[in-house]
């Protein structure tokens, strides 16, 4: 990472800390901001965050590894999370899963080589009455069908370049 990028990163973090407060209760909102902007939390980020919040880096690491929506490793710019809990399972989420794997050419837990899509399982998204449910970054899609998977993916592909997803930026890490 370039020095200037590091400085930029540190500046961003300091700004978020100023916004959310400088004690440990600001940890999750700050991490969410980093995740939104950089799509993952690097070791460097964790140490800077710990420093600014006056806690230990290992505590930040513990929190980051606890939550599935905050990631240690770089992920695709679109993270697709398909619900695997029982209601969605009964409403045919396996067909959606197969469709996604087919269209993207990757398995669950993987990222496309171009770094655009990551496929993951999620637990109940609270949309059980309208399953199968699926999240793309922070947008929820319900009653997904194999056909609508196409459309959703197309929409994502079209969104490249245009900043549809707020705060999004290429990840410098």
């Amino acid at each position: 990472m370039l020095v200037s990028e590091r400085e930029q990163l540190r500046e961003n973090i300091e700004q978020w800390v100023a916004q959310y407060g400088s004690d440990r209760s600001a940890l999750i909102p700050v991490l969410q901001e980093v995740q939104r902007k950089y799509h993952h939390i690097s070791e460097y980020v964790m140490q800077v965050v710990a420093d600014t919040l006056n806690i230990h880096p290992v505590e930040v690491y513990g929190v980051v590894s606890f939550y599935s929506f905050i990631g240690l490793r770089p992920k695709g710019r679109f993270i697709i999370r398909l619900c695997r809990t029982i209601s969605c399972a009964m409403q045919g989420n396996n067909r959606i899963a197969r469709q996604l794997e087919n269209d993207l050419g990757i398995h669950f837990g993987e990222t496309t080589p171009d770094g655009n899509f990551t496929l993951e399982w999620a637990n109940c998204l609270g949309m059980c009455d309208r399953g199968p449910a699926m999240l793309v970054n922070d947008r929820i899609f319900t009653q997904v069908t194999p056909e609508s998977v196409h459309e959703i993916l197309d929409e994502c592909r079209k969104a490249f370049g245009a900043h549809t997803f707020q705060g999004e930026e290429t990840c410098p890490l």
Partner: peptide, 16 residues
């Protein structure tokens, strides 16, 4: 030292 992950994957770990 801290504990990472959740439930049966928890483990005492160091940074990274």
């Amino acid at each position: 030292l801290e504990v990472n992950q959740r439930s049966n994957r928890s483990k005492v770990i160091t940074f990274g």
